[in-house]
Write a protein that binds this DNA or RNA. Structure first.
Lengths: 244, 244
DNA sequence: GAGTGGTCTAGACCACTAA
DNA sequence: TAGTGGTCTAGACCACTCT
């Protein structure tokens, strides 16, 4: 219930630890408020900026949520009912929407041709500077954004790709052209997103999200698309099946 | 090069945006320092706390790294040579270590029996209160921690599990008992870890990490282990294969 | 010694919420 | 209207790095 002002550990960390302890031990229960910032200043004898910094870390860890004018409350994770989406299957527009009985929307944010940079070219096995499609799509289920996707795709055997195709289904277009996507390799990381991504996915400034660097292949193993995919874990969970 | 003090957007966000722009456009190149905090105060006419807060977000986004006494530098991601580990396969001690020609260590942090709580019991299909093993392991490759793992495992057909087994290979022990693990379902999320996890994995206070909630099954489909697995993305990347 | 980032203070004004 | 969190200031002392 007190901090050691001679400790090498910063005040805000000591306060964070004590609040964490009280939350873990259910001394402060899910849904309950933690002490107000003014109260923390009193209790621990620190300034408000220091008290706030302690709470900042709890917010960023997803333990508490702040509400201006109301207070700061312990998050009740048991109440979270999130839809589970598979990371190891491609989201085929119609499939998922039909299964969940929800509307699906693909919002094309950007769509143009550009020349492949070194990294993209290497992944797509093209010479640097080859024209490719560049597109950004925001995908929504029931008007809630679940994926923000920046993608570079071959333009060579697909000269007539349009925004219309992207609004509907990119993979359906490829199939119609006689090319069958078979899968992708993804590298997954946890990141605090840049502001453009954060705003598109309607997230707070403190929510880390899942990011996948994806390289998609046709059935013959040749790569046709490189993408940066950002997954919104506010409304969804993402799953995968692992083997031994 | 200036901020709008009448804007509704906080000063620190405006500054962050401008620095982001300069980094993206390579006006400030990877490896180069961004302006010092004192300089930012001058340039934008703000106090140091405000300037710092702008830089805080860049740090948390992994765009820059601060070094006390030296400065704050744009991170050069192209220099990152990280080992790729598969998320969709179980890390079998010997396999990975052998393949990479690195040493593997399993450090048992905690090991005891406890009674299954409601959630664990449900996932393991046991009555609440059934005794289970609880263990925390830190796993290191070449002395660098790559996984922190909290696990609850059946104790019923395995009465004689010891710390020794955990130091060596948990799955080898199960196999020796005639039970073959076949795979697991995982739910993946991005999180800022709690301090215990952060310290064990030797991470900064601002690095989000990958977290998996895993339920592992035997070949007959019965669950034998629930685990919270935290993946260190400082030295490693994590990959998976997706199908269409 | 000069310059860097890390922490901290004691105020302030504001927007929002609830009684 | 009182209380909450959101932002901001203008200082301060410190540990560390580089020269």
């Amino acid at each position: 219930m007190n901090i050691d002002k001679n400790s090498l550990i910063p005040f805000y960390l000591q306060i964070e630890q004590q609040l964490t302890e009280k939350i873990s031990s259910h001394e402060i229960k899910p849904g309950d408020p933690i002490p107000t910032e003014a109260a923390l200043c009193e209790i621990y004898g620190v300034s408000r900026m220091t008290a706030r910094k302690a709470v900042d870390y709890l917010v960023r860890q997803g333990r508490v949520a702040r509400f201006r004018g109301r207070g700061t409350f312990v998050i009740d994770t048991s109440l979270e009912q999130k839809t589970v989406l598979p990371l190891d299957r491609h989201f085929t527009a119609s499939d998922i929407a039909r299964e969940l009985n929800q509307t699906l929307e693909n919002r094309v944010v950007e769509f143009r041709r550009e020349k492949a940079d070194a990294e993209t070219a290497a992944l797509l096995k093209l010479p640097v500077g080859t024209p490719v499609y560049f597109m950004i799509r925001l995908r929504l289920l029931d008007n809630k954004p679940f994926v923000y996707e920046k993608s570079w795709m071959l333009s060579e055997p697909f000269p007539d790709l349009t925004r219309e195709h992207l609004n509907h289904s990119k993979y359906a277009y490829l199939e119609a052209q006689g090319y069958t996507p078979s899968g992708s390799s993804k590298q997954i990381s946890a990141e605090l997103p840049a502001n453009t991504v954060r705003q598109a996915l309607d997230l707070s400034r403190d929510e880390p999200i899942l990011h996948a660097r994806s390289v998609a292949y046709f059935t013959d193993g040749s790569p046709f698309e490189v993408a940066d995919i950002y997954y919104n874990q506010r409304y969804y969970r993402f799953s995968l099946e692992a083997r031994c």
